[in-house]
């Protein structure tokens, strides 16, 4: 995951709206953290409340595999 800041891109036509704030999510700076390791990433974020969206493919794909690697460290 390091050096891979944009492994999720907001696809055109995929309009994500923060349900609470009623504004569109934007590409924002986020960070994943696990077992004292941090990975800066770009993810869809609500510009008002800061809600970070982790889509299913990302969670069950890349995130899971990085978790597994760290768990064996």
């Amino acid at each position: 995951m390091p050096n891979e800041k944009t492994y999720y891109s907001l696809e055109a036509g995929q309009n994500l709206v923060c349900h609470k704030c009623g504004v569109h999510l934007i590409k924002g700076n986020a960070v994943f953290e696990y077992l004292d390791n941090a990975f800066p990433v770009e993810l869809p974020v609500c510009p008002q409340c800061g809600f970070v969206y982790v889509p299913e493919e990302l969670a069950m794909g890349r995130v899971l595999s990085v978790e597994k690697v760290l768990e064996d460290k």
Binding site: N29, V31, F32, E33, P40, E56, A59, V63, L64, E67
Partner: peptide, 13 residues
Amino acid sequence: LSVYSHRMTVRTR
């Protein structure tokens, strides 16, 4: 429609 999970935490920076 779907349920998934991860152990990492995520926040804005």
